[in-house]
Design a protein around this nucleic acid. Structure first.
Length: 575
RNA sequence: GUGCCCGUAGCUCAAUUGGAUAGAGUGUUGGCCUCCGACGCCAAAGGUUAUGGGUUCGACCCCCGUCGGGCACGCCA
């Protein structure tokens, strides 16, 4: 038997609908929009009105009449145009909570048919420090990875390193310009390489010849020039090491550290397939694929540039083929800036034309940009982009200010660990509380406060429950009883967990999780404020409330984990 | 020029995909620490959902127009 009350009620409804001859697709409840009237509502009668050619209230009344026979409901009513409102018996609520509490997955389902998913997030580049733009991709990607894993899918994340484009030639050209050759390359650090790249970037913007040289070197590198390859190998490994450090701090995990360069061989295959299938043509010296322009103009996809180098489009197409052939992907998810949406439309369409990913679900989860106060992509005061590392440091500094002096019990190391957990939690929650698709205004000041709808608020709720549980000592949680409105509200809120996780999974939308985590913590705080736990009227009530508190703690910890945020055991604050 | 996205409380964002009285945070005002952690709780004020029409039992959501904003449009990735 399922631990989900929602499913139990849906089954009851389905039986009634079947008996009355109604379409069972509409036999579903949802959390009530009117908590003053009901716990759950069913809108099925309204949806049925059209096909049944009947007054929705009449249909609702028939269904309600059957529901009223069921002792599990304390109240059934038809309101408004035909809403069926249900109130559930307190004893049923209490036993449901006991079941959830006893379940190791806290009542959460797994998907019926697990899929092999490849997740493409990250997207860092050689020689470029991670900046705020990389934050969203890493943070959202990590959360989606954890959610999919939790619901039972087999998900593999790939950082998809940008290591094969013209910037490679630009850096090599710049090194040659300074040193005369590439002999010193292997002594260069990540800082040196970034500096070379910055100079090269400026030069290539101003000087068409420099750009041409860079393109030539890139093409030769791609075609196997041994000297270039050797130097490039160093640039890549140094960059990977630097970026790994950043991602580790954010707790963003990647199973694979492949890059564009790994798709090089397959690019040639793609070009051949395109030629075989007669979808490629030569245009201005470039090999391109034209796309159907049904309702909107679509630029062609360039496979091979006129200089002989592969475009990033063919690289992405080849990468799809590899992920399907080698990793057996059934689904590929790209967590990439939404400004790339046309690119992915094109790439997916070519993949379809070439038949390299049959029955594979390809989807681009495009996220909005992190913006400054002016609504444009976030820049530092001097006009540059803000480094991720600097951002993390700023947040940590703010948190550290609020910490007490180290003591014997909590030494400096302990406090620093806490600072990191809270600062990273604040940054990540700030990002994940917004819908993926919408950008958000980034306020540095938001890191000065940890009140309201923030990561630390939820961390605090967890720490406070931990504190209660420590004080409870030998006292153990016991069967849940509902004795007041706050307990009832909390119990109903807890029962939404499974639904929330499944919705977040289906929509690939972590903000559904973050929003719920916040309201659950909030509901708990109200409960906490009105319902004493240790000094409850009876031992039974104390045991019940202790179980509720422990369950909320476990759920919040799970939710934070799905968001990629740590839940510290305790929180400290300056006296 | 063409296409895509957006416009909701002073500010930053929601609204379970067409359902009831559009909700949170922040800011403002006022209450609550002798009591399990006040990074907390309770309350008040704040809205013609840019605008004009349409579709239907019912629209922030779907369709058309207008105004305003963002983004993308072949050899950067």
């Amino acid at each position: 038997m399922s631990v989900s009350l929602e499913k139990i009620i849906n089954q009851k409804l389905a039986d009634i609908f079947a008996e009355l001859g109604f379409n069972q697709n509409f036999a579903v409840i949802k959390t009530s929009d009117r908590p003053d009237l009901s716990d759950f509502q069913c809108n099925g009668a309204l949806a049925l009105a059209k096909s049944e050619h009947k007054n929705p209230r009449e249909i609702a009344a028939q269904i309600a009449a059957a529901l009223q026979q069921d002792a599990d409901f304390s109240a059934v009513s038809v309101d408004g145009p035909g809403f069926i409102n249900l109130k559930v018996n307190d004893t049923l609520i209490a036993s449901t909570i006991d079941n959830i509490s006893a379940d190791e997955r806290l009542g959460c389902d797994k998907v019926a048919e697990p899929q092999k998913i490849v997740l493409d997030s990250g997207g860092p580049n050689v020689a470029k420090a991670l900046h705020v733009g990389h934050l969203r991709s890493a943070v959202i990607g990590e959360s989606i990875r954890r959610i999919e894993k939790f619901v039972g899918n087999d998900i593999v994340s790939d950082v998809h390193f940008g290591d094969w484009g013209t910037p490679m030639g630009m850096i090599l050209a710049e090194i040659i310009r300074q040193d005369g050759n590439l002999s010193k390359t292997e002594t260069y650090t990540i800082e040196d390489i970034s500096a070379f790249y910055k100079r090269a970037n400026i030069r290539c913007k101003e000087d068409e010849d420099a750009k041409e040289t860079a393109r030539k070197i890139t093409a030769e590198l791609q075609n196997g020039n041994a000297e270039y390859r050797k130097a490039w190998q160093h640039l890549r490994s140094v960059s990977v090491a630097a970026v790994k450090k950043n991602y580790e701090e954010l707790a963003a995990h990647f199973d694979l550290w492949l890059g564009e360069s790994d798709a090089h061989e397959t690019c040639a295959e793609i070009v051949n397939i395109a030629k075989d299938k007669n979808v490629a043509e030569l245009d201005d010296g470039a090999t391109i694929v034209r796309l159907e322009e049904t309702n909107k103009p679509k630029p062609p996809v360039i496979l091979v540039k006129s200089d002989g180098g592969y475009s990033y489009q063919v690289t992405d197409i080849a990468t799809i083929k590899m992920r399907v052939d080698d990793l057996h992907a059934q689904e590929i998810i790209y967590v990439v800036d939404k400004r790339q949406s046309l690119h992915f439309e094109q790439v997916f369409e070519v993949a379809e034309k070439l038949g390299i990913a049959p029955n594979v679900k390809l989807q681009h989860i495009g996220f909005g940009t992190v913006n400054g106060a002016d609504g444009k992509p976030f820049k530092t005061r001097d006009g540059g982009v803000m480094n991720l590392e600097d951002l993390i440091k700023l947040s940590k500094d703010k948190v550290r200010e609020s910490m007490p002096e180290p003591t014997e019990e909590y030494n400096a190391e302990y406090i620093e660990k806490l600072v990191s957990q809270i600062a990273i939690g604040a940054i990540k929650f700030q990002d994940l509380k917004n819908n993926i698709a919408s950008g958000y205004i980034f306020e540095l000041d938001d890191f000065a406060k940890f009140d309201g709808k923030t990561g630390p608020y939820i961390q605090y709720a967890v720490a406070r429950i931990n504190s209660i549980l420590r004080k409870a000592g030998a006292l153990k949680g016991g069967n849940v009883v509902i004795s007041n409105a706050e307990e009832r509200d909390l119990a109903l809120k807890i029962m939404q967990l499974n639904n929330i996780v499944m919705r977040a999974h289906e929509a690939k939308e972590p903000s559904i999780i973050s929003d719920y985590a916040y309201t659950l913590a909030q509901t708990f705080s109200s409960f906490y404020n009105t319902s004493p736990i240790m000094s409850a009227e009876t031992p039974q009530l104390a045991a019940s409330r202790l179980r509720l508190a422990a369950l909320v703690r476990d759920i919040l910890t799970l939710l934070l984990n799905l968001l990629g945020i740590e839940a510290p055991e305790i929180m400290l604050k300056k006296a």
